[in-house]
Amino acid sequence: MALTVLALRAGQVVGFDELIDELWGEAPLKNTRNSLQGIVARMRRSLGRIGLDGTDRGVVRTVGNGYVLGMPADRLDANRFLQQAREGRDLIGHSPRKAAELLRGALAMWYGPALVDIADGQRCRAAALRLDEQRRIVQEDLIAAQLEAGEAGAVVPELKQLHAEHPERERLSEQLMIALYRTGRQYEAIDTFHRTRRRLDAEMGLLPSLHLQRLYQAIITQDASLSH
């Protein structure tokens, strides 16, 4: 887990105390500093076995009262995912097919939940939640690109599954309503809105956003702006 904490802050010094708190929390060992040094020594040896310099002058360096992982950002999976996701998102409006290609590539970097094999440290938990949220956003961005490219029929099955798994995400409700409407299923689009409205009210005491309400009205009136 120590390497994960350093990787999440690559290029920045992570203090000894911060690492100790992440590794042992409220149940520290009697000599945590020595234990931490032992973990870092083993980490360096492991990195050396895969071709990285396993000394203090290598990728894991001691700096002041902490350690730093001196590795280029693009060598880390999380950073490569986020960068490619940003590039794809920026292309949705004017090059949706290229955007979809980049977004699919970003999602292909995932093999399961973020940091699933890492111990339950507070910082790692928070980072895992952020990364998993970014993954969901990229899934929605990919669907947005496909809708922009005129592929409404292709995304309906996936949207139905995602909407069932995450009914609280209004963007999925919006995308499903649009996809259904564009494939000639106006009644199902309207029903999706009402099911979303009922769930938001029952589970969170909320009304649908104004944006979702306006989309509902546009579907009812068959607004020409919904066509693609």
Rank of each mutant, 00 (worst) to 15 (best):
A2Q: 11
V5T: 10
A7P: 10
R9W: 08
V13Y: 03
V13M: 12
G15F: 03
G15S: 15
F16L: 04
D17Q: 15
E18R: 06
E18Q: 09
L19D: 13
I20E: 09
D21P: 00
D21R: 14
A27N: 13
A27K: 15
L29K: 13
N31I: 06
N31E: 14
N34S: 15
I39Y: 12
I39W: 09
A41L: 13
R42N: 13
R44D: 03
R45W: 04
S46L: 11
G48M: 08
R49A: 14
I50L: 14
G51M: 05
L52F: 14
L52C: 08
G58A: 10
V59C: 08
V59F: 14
V60D: 12
R61G: 08
T62E: 15
V63S: 13
V63E: 15
G64I: 07
G64T: 06
G64L: 05
Y67W: 13
L69E: 03
L69W: 03
P72G: 12
F81E: 12
L82I: 05
L82M: 09
Q83A: 12
Q84T: 14
G88M: 01
R89P: 02
D90I: 00
L91W: 07
L91G: 08
H94A: 06
R97Y: 00
A99S: 11
E101H: 09
E101N: 04
E101W: 01
R104W: 02
L107A: 10
L107D: 11
A108W: 00
G112I: 07
A114T: 07
D117T: 13
I118W: 02
D120P: 01
G121V: 00
Q122E: 14
R125H: 03
A127E: 07
A128G: 14
L129E: 12
L131T: 02
D132S: 11
E133L: 14
R136F: 00
R136W: 01
I137E: 07
I137M: 09
V138F: 03
E140V: 03
L142E: 12
I143W: 01
A144P: 06
A144E: 12
A144I: 05
A145H: 02
A145C: 10
A145M: 02
Q146M: 13
Q146N: 06
E148D: 08
A152M: 05
A152L: 03
A154C: 00
A154F: 05
L159P: 09
L159Y: 04
Q161F: 06
L162R: 15
A164G: 06
H166T: 03
H166I: 04
E168M: 12
R169C: 04
L172G: 08
S173L: 06
S173D: 09
Q175M: 08
L176E: 06
M177G: 07
I178Q: 12
R182V: 02
R182K: 04
T183H: 03
G184V: 11
G184T: 09
G184I: 11
Q186R: 13
Y187C: 02
E188Q: 12
I190K: 10
D191S: 05
F193C: 06
T196D: 05
T196R: 11
R199I: 05
M204S: 11
L206D: 11
P208I: 08
P208M: 05
S209I: 07
L212V: 03
Q213Y: 00
R214F: 01
L215R: 00
L215P: 01
Y216W: 10
I219W: 02
Q222V: 09
Q222Y: 00
D223N: 13
L226F: 00
S227I: 10
